[in-house]
């Protein structure tokens, strides 16, 4: 891990105001923010560990637990809500047997709910990693996940 951290630190000066971008890059590298990594970051930007922990827990995009291989983000924005996002949420939760923020047992999918992806024209919407899937209904959701699961199992890249 130290090597990975050093490679991130190499492009920064170690200033206090770099904390957020440094944490973002560390998370990009490690997939999440383990405690030891945060302590290293604290030393690097010369801030108390508590401050770093405070920032990491304040922002929704930082994760302190390991996450699945693929991230499913269901949009719960207003437009999606009025077009039935809760039904999609129910479907995903039963299908994957997870609650919000949890990861499937095989570490394949992490299920998250986000406020708005800004693709309201296609509501209800979810994203799997960087791909957007719109105009969902419970059936289409199930098919999409199944297809994604199969595709990613075959070729590695969906």
């Amino acid at each position: 891990m130290q090597e990975q951290l050093n490679s991130v630190f190499a492009s920064y000066q170690g200033e206090k105001n770099e904390l957020i971008p440094v944490l973002q890059d560390v998370q990009e590298e490690l997939g999440y923010l383990p405690e030891e990594a945060m302590c290293e970051v604290a030393r690097f930007v010369r801030l108390p560990e508590a401050k770093v922990f405070g920032v990491a827990t304040f922002y929704a995009r930082f994760h302190l637990e390991p996450r699945g291989e693929h991230i499913i983000r269901l949009c719960c924005g207003t437009a999606c809500h009025v077009r039935g996002a809760t039904k999609i949420a129910d479907k995903l939760k039963t299908m994957l047997d997870v609650d919000v923020g949890e990861t499937t047992e095989n570490m394949k999918f992490t299920y998250e709910e986000v406020a708005c992806i800004g693709a309201c024209g296609l509501a209800p919407v979810m994203t799997i990693d960087d791909k957007t899937f719109g105009k969902l209904d419970p059936d289409k959701t199930e098919k999409t996940i199944k297809k994604f699961d199969e595709d990613s199992a075959e070729g590695g890249e969906a």
Binding site: G77, T78, C116, G118
Partner: peptide, 11 residues
């Protein structure tokens, strides 16, 4: 930092 759910004009 367009955060309002249901808004995407800035994006």
């Amino acid at each position: 930092d367009e955060g309002d759910p249901g808004a995407f004009m800035d994006r």
